[in-house]
Nucleic acid binder design. Structure first.
Length: 232
DNA sequence: TGCCAGGCCCTCTTTAGGGCCTT
């Protein structure tokens, strides 16, 4: 199964377009239902962090003065997550900063970096949850304590545990529809856009389509092999 | 306390508006 990188940014504001810059990033690698590694770092961009955000995250302007340059951190992160599909809690937020910081670091976009969102998935799978804020979902599911909330590694780790819980629940809830198909990133990306009142049918449609696609690919491989052997 | 941005979802919708979630 493909490795999924769960990422989380701490930033100086709510959008890169409004002058916001990243102050910290973390990535947690998830594969085969397990957490397999992590990377995190503060990032020095020269941006001023407002007092409200200093208080929220615990990341001060003084701490960032000693941090490695953002460009270097993003280059390391590009290597760490190479070939991984991406997951984040409220993915549009992290995706925006990901693309902005990668561009500023001069890194080319990785086509594997398609984002799935645990907020959208949680809204479909856990309508009984009081809210879909990360902290509330962690409490709702009794997820392991990952440390101080609003720090990148702790939030990325909590999101990784939430992702594992989502994968387990989808596998259990739709076992008949999935047959032997894994709860991979492609299925999650499909489910996050599905009509939540028809999730079972959506899973069935996805698996049918993927198996047809897989069959067509196998048939093409067979045709190509037969053609090669025949000297066509 | 309320606003700031962006993307997405939901509904009393689609020629829109309000709410959620992220820092």
């Amino acid at each position: 199964m493909q490795t999924i990188a769960v990422i989380d940014f701490e930033t100086s504001g709510l959008a890169p377009g409004g002058g916001g810059r990243a102050t910290e990033i973390a990535a947690v690698l998830v594969r085969d239902g397990r957490i397999e590694g992590s990377f995190s770092s503060l990032m020095k961009t020269g941006v001023w962090v407002p007092p409200f955000i200093e208080q929220l995250t615990g990341i001060s302007n003084e701490m960032l003065e000693q941090a490695p340059a953002a460009e270097e951190v993003m280059r390391q992160m590009a290597v760490f997550t190479q070939g991984c599909a991406m997951v984040a809690h409220n993915a549009p937020f992290d995706r925006g900063f990901w693309h902005a910081e990668m561009a500023l670091a001069g890194c080319d976009p990785d086509p594997a970096h398609e984002f799935a969102c645990t907020v959208l998935l949680a809204r479909r799978l856990y309508p009984e949850a009081p809210s879909c804020k990360l902290g509330m979902l962690a409490q709702f599911h009794h997820l392991p304590d990952s440390g101080r909330a609003h720090r990148a590694l702790a939030d990325a780790m909590t999101t990784a545990h939430l992702l594992l819980r989502i994968q387990q629940d989808v596998a259990a809830q739709f076992a008949d529809e999935l047959e032997d198909w894994p709860v991979d990133h492609a299925l999650l990306a499909h489910l996050q856009r599905a009509n939540k009142s028809a999730l079972k049918r959506s899973v069935q449609d996805f698996v049918r389509k993927m198996k047809l696609s897989e069959g067509a690919t196998s048939a093409n491989r067979g045709f190509a092999r037969a053609s090669a052997e025949a000297g066509v």
